[in-house]
Amino acid sequence: MSVIRHNWTKEEISGIYHKPLLQLVLEAADMHRQQHTFGEVQVSSLLSIKTGGCSEDCAYCPQAARYHTGVQVQALMKVDDVVEKAKQAKEGGASRFCMGAAWREVRDNRDFDRVLDMVKEVNKLDMEVCCTLGMLSESQAAKLADAGLYAYNHNIDTSEEYYKNIISTRDFDNRLDTLQHVRKAGITVCSGGIIGMGETDEDRIGMIHTLANLPKHPESVPINALVPVEGTPLEDSKRVPFYDLVRMIATVRLVMPEAAVRLSAGRKELSLAEQAMCFMAGANSIFAGDKLLTTPNPEFGDDMEMFQLLGLKSKAPFADKPEMKKVAVEAAAHA
């Protein structure tokens, strides 16, 4: 088994990233077999529980209020409606249900109380529950933990150096502060980034470097390929070459061996053979369902057909953290 490190240098990560592609994929596949059950894939479903109207200026996001993208602002969903969506996701094959709200930060108000109720109710379905709600304080993270939240997603997006070119309404340290609050609360961390936003290879390596040198690696690392949306500053961006995505996945697998590497946004543009190579390179998690918040995504049925063809199988909920199932059950009992 590989030694888990938290003292990587950018030069070391660069040396891995720039290896000949097939050699890199083979090494990553070997690491994947050492650390994980090969062919087992964690399936997540993502629902936008509050859409549009965000005050942030993230250059990639169609939900920013300042951009004209055609996304209609929608109020926070009702608890019962969210639970129904979670049931549908479970029937489709998802083991994790992630709820996303287009907020800059969580506020201590009725809306947050409703989200806490959503977490408790979805817990009753025996699913891992995840949220992505923007910045969190320590006390808010603790409340989510008490409600039985399994994971919190808060991507760092890119390198610290390139971050200001993508977002000006918060800084890179704000991202890291939220991850620290989530970790302190005992919630698992889901954090990755996006490629295809005009960044260099050095920026991609810098992003991996930041995550790899956290005191504890994220349990999930989503690797997103930009989906350009008309009306955003990045609308004219070219599609990320498929091999860049594979290179990122393989590098993350080698640098953070125990993490689930999630093949996320941009997957709809990949052929089945291209997705197969991503799984070979170490991806062992996907988002399934027809949408990722507001952008297209492959449907459950298509993914289950792919699983059958490639010999993949869905990972059971709480397989990695069985102790967190007890927390979820207890929180649901007090809902």
Rank of each mutant, 00 (worst) to 15 (best):
L144K: 04
L116I: 15
D113M: 14
E121G: 02
S139C: 02
V189P: 02
S168H: 01
V119H: 09
N123K: 00
D173T: 12
E128R: 10
F112W: 01
D157L: 08
K124C: 01
A145G: 14
V122M: 11
M127S: 01
D126L: 10
Y163F: 13
D157I: 15
V129Y: 07
E160P: 00
F172N: 11
D173H: 12
G186Q: 02
T132A: 06
L176I: 13
T132R: 01
E160Q: 03
C130P: 10
D117I: 14
F172Y: 15
L179R: 02
E161V: 08
L133T: 07
N165P: 00
E160A: 11
L144D: 12
D173Y: 07
I156S: 09
V119T: 02
L176Q: 11
G148F: 05
C131Q: 05
M118A: 07
E161L: 13
V122C: 08
A141R: 11
D113T: 02
E161N: 11
L176D: 08
R183V: 15
M135E: 03
S139I: 03
V115K: 04
S191C: 06
G134D: 03
Q140Y: 14
A151D: 09
T178C: 00
S137F: 08
T132N: 09
Y162E: 05
M118Y: 14
I167T: 06
L176M: 09
N155M: 12
V189G: 05
L136I: 08
Q140V: 11
L116R: 12
R114T: 13
N153R: 08
D157Q: 14
D171Q: 13
D157T: 12
N165I: 10
V182D: 09
I156E: 10
E121Q: 08
V119C: 05
D146G: 12
I167K: 12
T169P: 00
L136R: 07
L133D: 11
Y152N: 05
T169Y: 04
T178S: 01
N123P: 04
I167Q: 13
C130R: 01
S159G: 05
R175S: 11
T132P: 09
G192I: 08
A147W: 07
T158W: 04
A185L: 09
V182I: 13
H181G: 01
N165D: 14
L144N: 05
G186C: 04
N174C: 12
D113E: 15
G148K: 03
G192K: 07
K143Y: 03
S137K: 00
S168C: 01
